[in-house]
Design a protein around this nucleic acid. Structure first.
Length: 665
RNA sequence: GCCGGUGUGGCGCAGCUGGUAGCGCAGGCGACUUGUAAUCGUCAGGUCGUGGGUUCGAGUCCCACCGCCGGCUCCA
């Protein structure tokens, strides 16, 4: 008597299978190709092993390698193979966790005798992994009681700790079986190797192989710096050799776009060791780009009703005592200098208290609100030595910082208009693909009542939803004084960067006793909104540079046009061309005929100059130029000088942005 | 701050088991006068990150510190 079960496929169709049928049976019943490619199934949306019996009535879909779910499974399984290889090569090694991450996986180990992995070890481990894969080891799932699990991993302290966490009811643990009960699941590969794991896994190691070990790194157990540091190996794994190669190529492209590399090649900025870690200097070309970025920002801020202010770089300690920064972030500040007989002065890590004092400098009326104070304010933060990184994480930076003071009833409108202003400006710099993130109250590190936080968070949420962009929640990610919305932008090669932040702050106005006189002739407390658009000029510079791969659009390019006379006697005409372009505001240079044209073209191209003009006999005679546009297939000969002048003027006036993905090629 | 790696002229690199530093590009000068991605020649440039140590002798070995790179932790 066969009872039989019925499952629902993703397309809604139903399929009958014998009782006890597995995912593999289902795949086989659908087709031979699917049976071959299947790695796992999802049962009612939950990933599960191909070999487990399917429940009656479930919605089941077969997972193959080319899908997100499929890659997750094969990465997880590859991580197990990595662990097995390390345990083979280092008998007595302790293994911790090996989760899937974006584009790959890692596994953490503690090697016997506190030994560390070296880069060369990766080659050996890689070879061992390939041997394991060639052995075609099946992944076999077993479920055990807590006690059995503890016995099984008797000499594996990290595994025992995970099992104990499962026993004690921690839910976030990766090894908890998905079907409940006080038990753990273990996957066996070979007699000598098993790993605590929720699964699912590929049926056997032969489904794996398109992987690469990327690097070794130290990582704290459970991400806690007070706990032992383990040895982590990062790897990536894909469904095919092509997909793996594509991934490696994407990484290579990111490396080519690295702003630190471009900054050096294009002579934009440097980090002199003599000055100190995380303290950049901008060279003339970089300084020019920076000025262009800032100039347009100022223009937009002026038009949007911001008032420009300026504040000093250091202050008495009291200011940051009042603001609360010294309570929360003294660690992140440069140590104080003692002046005037024991008075502590600090380098400022933030601009807000200064702007508050400007607000407080006289009595304010509701008629002045919203008051929008803007400044390119340079701040200094003592970043820990290991975190400093190019222009994106520095110890001295300039924020395009604004603080908006408004009445409570203006808050919602002000947030909405600020958010659209911010997005509009970012779009003008060429970023186009955004989503928003709402960061809520941080646990144990916040001031203010729950009611205030709740009200502020909801107001921000409403403003964010009004933007018609994706909104994700960042639980506990807010600042200590209030929740925030941040704008996340995708760059030309698909990476996400946190750009602007807009933070609501009920606390600071209270701490400083800010007031304004309302229409009712009574004193009221303003709401304060912190807002940075670029975040920091340095970081935004870096992001734009990487976004455009150094090929900044003409309106931001330090050098827009380079004129190359073919021969020396074309020099006077080249100079005339340059003068005409400079007269309409063009940033132009001329490189004389001391070297063959090809070499000069090449140099100009490498400098990523948007327009390279070549002028020779024909041009002198006809009043034309040869235009070699960055990114164009071939140069254009015989362009009227006036036509080119107009083109340049238009492109710059419109702030026309180029296809950043092309990177100026 | 922690783990690992790394540090040679402006840049990219070579320098074997220790025997007082090389190459390419860039730069200066000279020649070449060139129509769309590298003309030729020549010259100059380095206390090998810093400070200790081992050694007859250290760029090569050891220690400490600094910078940088990749992670972890952190990021108002």
């Amino acid at each position: 008597m066969t009872v039989g079960i019925e499952v629902v496929l993703p397309d809604g169709s139903r399929r009958s299978l014998p009782d006890g049928a597995t995912g593999a049976d289902l795949a086989a019943s659908i087709g031979r190709r699917l049976a071959r490619d299947a790695l796992a199934v999802t049962v009612d949306g939950q990933l599960s092993d191909l070999g487990r019996p399917l429940p009656d009535g479930a919605v089941v879909s077969v997972v193959t390698a080319g899908s997100d779910a499929g890659r997750e499974v094969l990465r997880h399984s590859t991580a197990h193979v990595l662990a097995q290889a390390v345990l083979r090569l280092w008998p007595g090694a302790k293994y911790a966790i090996g989760p899937v991450i974006e584009d790959g996986f890692y596994y953490d180990f503690a090697l016997p005798g506190g030994v560390h992995f070296s880069e060369e070890d990766l080659t050996r481990i890689d070879a061992e992994m390939r041997a394991i894969i060639a052995e075609d080891q099946p992944f076999v799932r077993h479920e055990h009681s807590i006690d059995e699990g503890l016995a099984l991993f008797e000499d594996q302290p990290f595994k025992r700790e995970i099992i104990e966490a499962v026993r004690d009811g921690a839910t976030e643990v990766d090894a908890a079986p998905d079907d409940g009960g006080a038990a753990v699941s273990v996957y066996w590969n070979a007699p000598g190797f098993s790993d605590l794991c929720r699964g699912p896994h590929v049926p056997s190691t032969r489904f794996l192989g398109h992987f690469a070990l990327m690097r070794v790194a130290g990582a704290y157990w459970r991400g806690d710096e007070r706990r032992p540091q383990l040895q982590r190996i990062y790897g990536t794994a894909w469904e095919s050799g092509t997909a793996l190669a594509d991934y490696l190529e994407r990484r290579a492209e990111a490396e080519r776009r690295d702003h630190r590399k471009l900054g050096l090649e294009l002579d934009l900025f440097s980090f002199p060791e003599e000055i100190g870690s995380g303290l950049p200097v901008f060279h003339p070309r970089g300084g020019l780009v920076r000025r262009l970025m800032e100039d347009y920002s100022r223009e937009r801020h002026a038009a949007a009703g911001y008032d420009f202010v300026a504040t000093p770089h250091i202050t008495k300690a009291e200011l940051f005592e009042t603001s609360g920064h010294l309570d929360w972030f003294a660690e992140g500040m440069f140590p104080p200098m003692q002046l005037d007989g024991g008075q502590d002065y600090y380098l400022k890590p933030m601009n807000c208290p200064f702007h508050v004092l400007i607000f407080k400098s006289r009595q304010r009326s509701y008629r002045e609100l919203p008051l929008r104070l803007f400044e390119f304010g340079t701040v200094y933060r003592y970043e820990k030595s290991g975190v400093v990184h190019g222009l994106t994480r520095v110890r001295g930076m300039t924020q395009d910082d604004a603080h908006l003071f408004c009445a409570r009833e203006q808050m919602a409108d002000e947030l909405r208009s600020t958010l659209s202003f911010v997005l509009s400006v970012l779009r003008d710099y060429g970023l186009a693909d955004f989503y928003l993130e709402l960061s809520t109250k941080p646990e144990g590190k916040a001031v203010g009542t729950d009611e205030e936080w709740e009200a502020a968070t909801e107001t921000l949420r409403a403003a964010a939803l009004a933007m018609d962009l994706g909104l994700v929640l960042d639980e506990g990610g807010g600042a200590f004084y209030g929740p925030k919305i941040s704008v996340q932008a995708k760059d030309a090669i698909g990476r996400t960067h946190q750009m602007s932040t807009i933070q609501l702050d009920f606390q600071t106005p209270q701490r400083f006793g800010c007031e304004y006189i309302g229409a009712d002739n009574a004193r009221h407390r303003p709401i304060m909104i912190h807002r940075a658009l670029f975040g920091s000029v340095e970081r935004f510079f870096a992001i734009l540079l990487e976004h455009y791969a150094g090929a900044l659009p003409a309106w931001l390019a330090p050098e827009q046009v380079r004129v190359l006379p073919v021969r020396d006697d074309h020099g006077p005409y080249a100079a005339k061309v340059a003068d005409r372009l400079a007269a309409v505001g063009g940033r132009v240079s001329v490189e004389g005929a001391t070297e063959p044209l090809g070499a000069r073209i090449r140099r100009a191209k490498l400098a990523k100059v948007p327009y390279v003009l070549v002028v020779g006999d024909d041009d002198v005679a006809a009043g034309t130029v040869g235009v070699n546009r960055r990114g164009a297939d071939r140069p254009e000969r015989g362009v009227e000088l006036t036509a080119f002048t107009d083109e340049l003027e238009t492109v710059v006036a419109e702030r026309r942005n180029e296809d950043a993905a092309a990177g100026g090629r």
